[in-house]
Design a protein around this nucleic acid. Sequence first.
DNA 1: TAGTGGTCTAGACCACTGC
DNA 2: CAGTGGTCTAGACCACTAA
Lengths: 254, 254
Amino acid sequence: MSTLEPPRARYKQVAALLRDAIRRGDYTPGSTLPSQPDLAKKYGLNQSSISRAMATLQAEGWIRTEHGRGSVVLDVPMVKRVRKIDRHHRSSRGESAYAEELAEAGMTARTELVHWGEEDPPDIISEALRIAPSEAVLVRKRHMFADDKPVQIAASYIPMCVAGSVDIAMPDTGPSGMYGRLAERGFAPVRFSEDIEVRGATSEESEFLNIVHGQPVFQVLRTAFDPEGRPVEACLNVLAALRWRLTYTWEQER
Amino acid sequence: MSTLEPPRARYKQVAALLRDAIRRGDYTPGSTLPSQPDLAKKYGLNQSSISRAMATLQAEGWIRTEHGRGSVVLDVPMVKRVRKIDRHHRSSRGESAYAEELAEAGMTARTELVHWGEEDPPDIISEALRIAPSEAVLVRKRHMFADDKPVQIAASYIPMCVAGSVDIAMPDTGPSGMYGRLAERGFAPVRFSEDIEVRGATSEESEFLNIVHGQPVFQVLRTAFDPEGRPVEACLNVLAALRWRLTYTWEQER
DNA sequence: TAGTGGTCTAGACCACTGC
DNA sequence: CAGTGGTCTAGACCACTAA
């Protein structure tokens, strides 16, 4: 039994001790912490207090408690990954911007097409595309991995009147290839806009991204416009906000 | 006493009821919720359970509990504010970009110079400016308000070798005026880079921004470079992440 | 089945606020 | 001082997981 002293709340002291232990590497990602009854015995506290400490660590993103199994240590990256946007950086090759970015960071990119077809878009998308909510769009939803770890959910939406047919999205070559096919149809994207918001992760998102439900995620909405200013594509990306740094660079117009 | 039914945890049901009530406007921003003993009586629960419901609402950013005073309802903006960055948008007038942005949204901007002088910079700044940690910089820390509500903390850092003297930052006219004086000294900023991270708010930040400790904040680090690629200014902005949408637009290089 | 985490109570004491 | 929220216990029961 260790010594926990007021005035600081003892469940916070336990949380701090475990947090430091995880940070030090005493508990490695994927392993489980001692059980709550064991920790209660060790620190001379009630299970309720330990449970509270665990809830704290979970809210901070250090662990994920799994009912009936234990408290699993999550992998907490010391260095954030970088997502880079600048004018000189895009579509230089046939690869997707995503693969390029990760390659620069020395990581391997993999993309999985999750879903694909013609649908009614969510409100945020119909607004971005300036179409009626009932107007169908071509959807392409993908899961993205870096070194086989899940990192991003991406959903691309194109109005059917722009896409022409569902085939334009196949094969799934990423934005560059698809933008080329859009250009052939007279809808070459020339201007881009990204809206960045932060919100709590949904259950679906937290499951895929391997974070705790409610942890903050970036929701990045990229809209592509053709020379006439018409939106031709909207793409909704979701990333774990605590694990990424987004970078934008631009030159001053003089 | 109301009816709360398993299987859902009853403290979660109470949290949901109060959340809906706040959303509906039954409790207005600035007012306090009923006391925990009162709510316990009303819902037929123990104070501990109510306390847990309150902790949940606080973590979600709906209320702020104040020890000995009560649980204060925070103002939850329905529409997020927008912070816009594009090449065509900046330094068109003598005003600061911040004032321009807010004026477009129909809001009144106010800036308060909090602190000003010559200091050793934090690590993140010395890295951005590519100087030794011990090299002094000119600091200009400001608090920014929109319609007299606190919205942003901004700290600008300029290497002393670039600034020349501390006077360059005065009078406090915002970036545009200051960039002009830098240009006179041969350090005209022409390229900009912004790094966006999300982290939990510190106590100081949560106090000023009127959010709960630990709620996510944007930390935006803008670095300005002169034509030779030398960093001439680094500016660290902190905003409540759940209340803002950041927007970036750019044109495709062809 | 045994072991895990999740919830809840009844009661207690504390620290802080404002009158 | 009374009223507020914060913490903690001892004990209980539940739901879930894995052997």
